[in-house]
Amino acid sequence: MWRIERRHEEFPGTVTLALRREGHLEVPALPGQFNMLYAFGAGEVAISLSGPSAPSSDPLIHTIKSQGFATQALCRLPVGAQLGVRGPFGHGWPMLDGSHRPLVIIAGGLGLAPLRPLIYRFLQGQLPARSLQVFYGARRPQEMLYREELPAWGKSFELVTSVDHADTNWNGHVGVITDPLRVSAVNVKEALVLLCGPEIMMRFCIQVLRHKGVPASSIYLSMERNMKCAIGLCGHCQWGPHLVCRDGPVFCYQDVCKWFQINGL
């Protein structure tokens, strides 16, 4: 059974949990995959892995926002508490081949969580990417994830942060993330762009990326739908011809652009 080894409150209502299972070392999860976390009696919810960077004996890291019944219960669990874990499930981020393409990560809000394992991998020199640019948009400076890690990230690669609202203490961008994205120098021909955030934010980012000339085949995004069984059997995460838990959550934009434009799907 899994136990909470560490618990860190990112900001009120959002916590990062480190989970470890006694007697088990191998954790074969890939960046972009998700687990189903069960809080006793309250329910189960799909949460992406926000760490570690690769299959290892390190604890599983999950960042959870308290929203529904199950996430509220998970966020309340103290260090040492046990919880159920099923997974990992789904297809993660495309693994970079040896071509050393420049990597562009665009994250919004909680969407930074499933991308953090890739950032870790880059920092450890294990990601065959020529360069890394990270664009991170959030609601307010106080509602950014991993705030204590951001300064170090900014020294290791190009990190652009933007918030919708801020008072005068904030030193980063104020505005939507599409603004700095629009004016940034992105190697549009070669870059591999990975997107995760609210669907509406991803739509606007894709508009900008396509306008800049990034091919649809170079854009990957992580979709959110209600995932209940996580194994393609319950029908909850239907999205056009796809079952998000089975075929995603990460999709290549080229393969899903038709479905991405249909409202209420």
Binding site: K65, G68, E224, R225, N226, G235, H236, Q238, G264, L265
Partner: peptide, 19 residues
């Protein structure tokens, strides 16, 4: 069935029947 944290993806009969 299609509930996400902000609300259901298919909230109306039109999108439910179409689905």
């Amino acid at each position: 069935l299609s509930h996400l944290s902000g609300g259901p993806v298919r909230a109306d009969t039109r999108t439910q029947y179409r689905q």
